[in-house]
C-alpha cells in the first residue's frame, strides 16, 4: 500500500495529526516538518510513519502502537510518555528524550541531551551516541542503553530502571550505583542492541547501573 503523504509546510499540523489519529493502520510520510512541535503526537494505531526532516518538541509524543521514523534531529521530549510501538530518530535528540515513557522502543542514532529517560516507566531507550546530565532521573522502570558516555548525575534518585553504559559516566546521582552484569543482563542487553540496530556491539563492554535502594524509606539520614 502506498504511503499517504502530508506536507507540513502547507497543511495545518492539527489537521494532519487528526487524520493520523483516525487511521486504523497503513503508512504515512510527513514532509517539511521544519522544526514544528508535536509532529505525529498522539498516534494510537499500528501505523508506519516517516517524518522527512527535523522536528521540534514532543515529536511522536505519547505514541501508542505506531512505528515512527524521524529522518532528522528531534527537539525536547521526543517520544515522551510513549506507551508502545517504536520511535527511531536518525539524528540527535534534545532534552528529555523518552521522558516518562511507559513502553515501546526509542532509538536515537546520535546523541541525546540532558534528562534522557527522565522518570521513564517501562520503555526501552537505546542511544547510539552519548547522553547529557541528569539522565534517568527518578527512572522507575525500563532499560536505557548508552553506546557512548553519560553526563553528570546519571540515575539520580533512580527506582527500578536498568541502565547500561558503554563509555564513561561523568558522575552518578544519588542512590545510583554500578552493578554486576549477570547472564540475564547480557541477554537483555543483547536483545536491545539487536532490536536497535547495533548487532556488532559486545555486551561485555557495557556496565550496568541501578538503584542502591537506600532512598526507598524516609529517615533522618536521607533527607536532602
Amino acid at each position: 500500500m502506498d504511503a499517504m503523504t502530508f506536507d507540513l509546510g502547507a497543511e495545518r499540523l492539527r489537521d494532519v495529526n487528526r487524520t493520523l489519529h483516525r487511521l486504523k493502520n497503513g503508512r504515512a510520510r510527513l514532509k517539511n516538518p521544519n522544526g514544528k512541535h508535536s509532529v505525529a503526537a498522539g498516534l494510537r494505531s499500528p501505523l508506519s510513519v516517516v517524518v522527512n526532516g527535523h522536528c521540534g518538541y514532543y515529536a511522536a509524543g505519547m505514541n501508542q502502537l505506531a512505528d515512527v521514523i524521524i529522518e532528522g534531529n528531534a527537539g525536547v521530549g521526543v517520544a515522551e510518555n510513549m506507551m508502545s510501538g517504536s520511535v527511531r530518530v536518525h539524528g540527535n535528540a534534545s532534552q528529555s528524550a523518552g521522558a516518562t515513557a511507559h513502553g515501546g522502543l526509542l532509538v536515537i542514532t546520535g546523541d541525546a541531551a540532558a534528562r534522557c529517560g527522565i522518570s521513564m516507566k517501562g520503555a526501552d531507550i537505546v542511544v547510539g551516541g552519548s547522553i547529557g546530565h541528569m539522565s534517568a532521573f527518578m527512572a522507575q522502570a525500563g532499560r536505557l542503553v548508552v553506546r557512548g558516555d553519560a553526563g553528570e548525575a546519571l540515575g539520580d534518585s533512580i527506582y527500578e530502571a536498568r541502565l547500561y553504559v558503554r563509555g564513561k559516566v561523568a558522575s552518578l546521582g544519588a542512590d545510583c550505583i554500578a552493578k554486576d552484569m549477570l547472564a540475564e543482563h547480557h541477554t537483555e542487553l543483547r536483545d536491545l542492541l539487536d532490536r536497535a540496530g547495533f548487532p556488532d556491539d559486545d555486551t561485555a563492554d557495557y556496565t550496568r547501573y541501578g538503584s542502591a535502594r537506600q532512598l526507598y524509606h524516609f529517615n533522618a539520614g536521607n533527607e536532602y
Partner: peptide, 19 residues
Amino acid sequence: PDWTGPDDLTIKIQELREI
C-alpha cells in the same frame, strides 16, 4: 520532566491539544 519554563509550557499545552 519535559518542560522547564513558561515558554516550554506553551508548547506542552499545544501538544496536549494536538493529542
